[in-house]
C-alpha cells in the first residue's frame, strides 16, 4: 500500500516541525518538513516541492516570523504572498489540513478556519488575542472530543473521550466578532475539542489556559478536513510523554496518536 505523504510546512520561527514529522511517520505516513521557499518556483530543482503532490498539509507549532504583528499573521501573509491559491485549492480538495497551536493561528489568519461559507473567509472572522492571564501558558490540559462525526482528523478518537496533552501558547484566546459564533460552530459540527476541568466539567482557568470563549480548544471547517487545534498532540505520541505515565496511565500509546491515525487512516481507506 502506498504511504500517505505529508508536507509539514515550516518557515523561520516554526519549531515543532520535527515532532510533527515524527508523529506522522509513527502512524505510517511518509512525512517531511518543507520550507515555504521550497514551494516557490524559484527554488532550485533539488529542493523544489509541489504542494499538490502531498496528501496532507500540516502547519506546525512554534513562533513563525517571531510571532510579530500577531501570532500566525506573518506565516499567513507569507503563504498568501506565495502559495495562497495552492493552499486554498488543497483545502478545498478535501485533503486533510492540520494546524497545531501556531499552525491553528495561521489557519485562522488565512481564513481557512472557521470558513463558514465553505471557502476561505475573505475577511478574518476570528482572532487569537493574548491569554486572559497575560502570560505564556504551558502545561497539561484536558480536552474532550465533542465532534459528532464531521472532522476527518479525529474520526478515530472516541466520542466524548478526554485526552491529555500539553498546551503552550501566549495568544490562545479565540475571539470572534460574531455574537453567535459558538452557536454557528455547534450547528455545523465544527467544534472538535473543548477544554474540561479535572472532573470533566466546564474548564475554568487554569484548565482553560487562555480564557477562550466556551472552552473551545479545536475547531474544523464545515467540510471537516481542516482542523485547528491549540494543544500539541504531536508531543504525546507514546505513553512516556503522557503526563501521567508514572502514575497509572494504562495505554501503551500517547493520547495524541489517534489524531494522526485519523488523518492518515482516512486517507488510505
Amino acid at each position: 500500500m502506498q504511504k500517505a505523504s505529508v508536507c509539514v510546512l515550516r518557515m523561520e520561527g516554526t519549531n515543532c516541525e520535527y515532532e510533527t514529522v515524527n508523529a506522522f511517520k509513527a502512524v505510517g505516513a511518509d512525512a517531511e518538513a518543507v520550507h515555504i521557499k521550497q514551494l516557490s518556483e524559484d527554488a532550485s530543482p533539488e529542493f523544489r516541492r509541489d504542494l499538490e503532490g502531498y496528501d496532507i498539509l500540516a502547519i506546525p507549532g512554534g513562533a513563525a516570523g517571531g510571532d510579530y504583528v500577531r501570532a500566525g499573521a506573518l506565516f499567513a501573509a507569507r503563504i498568501r504572498a506565495t502559495v495562497g491559491k495552492e493552499v486554498d485549492d488543497f483545502a478545498e480538495s478535501g485533503k486533510p489540513v492540520l494546524g497545531i497551536c501556531n499552525g491553528f493561528q495561521t489557519l485562522a489568519e488565512l481564513g481557512l478556519l472557521p470558513a463558514f461559507g465553505g471557502k476561505a473567509d475573505a475577511e478574518p472572522v476570528i482572532a487569537f488575542a493574548a491569554n486572559a492571564s497575560a502570560r505564556f501558558e504551558c502545561r497539561t490540559v484536558r480536552i474532550r472530543h465533542e465532534n459528532k462525526g464531521s472532522c476527518r482528523c479525529t474520526s478515530r478518537v472516541p466520542a466524548g473521550a478526554v485526552l491529555e496533552m500539553p498546551v503552550a501558547c501566549g495568544e490562545g484566546r479565540l475571539i470572534s466578532a460574531d455574537p453567535d459564533f459558538i452557536g454557528r460552530l455547534e450547528d455545523n459540527d465544527q467544534i472538535v475539542f473543548r477544554y474540561v476541568g479535572p472532573d470533566d466539567g466546564e474548564a475554568e482557568y487554569p484548565w482553560n489556559p487562555s480564557g477562550t470563549q466556551s472552552g473551545v480548544a479545536a475547531i474544523c471547517n464545515p467540510a471537516g478536513n481542516v482542523l485547528g487545534i491549540m494543544p500539541h498532540p504531536e508531543r504525546v505520541m507514546t505513553r512516556f510523554t503522557h503526563p501521567a505515565w508514572t502514575r497509572g496511565y494504562a495505554s501503551e500509546q500517547g493520547d495524541g496518536r489517534a489524531i494522526f491515525e485519523s488523518a492518515v487512516g482516512n486517507l488510505l481507506k
Binding site: V69, A73, P124, A127, A177
Partner: peptide
C-alpha cells in the same frame, strides 16, 4: 492586508 485583524 497584514497589520490589523479587524475582529479585535
Amino acid at each position: 492586508k497584514l497589520l490589523v485583524n479587524p475582529v479585535i
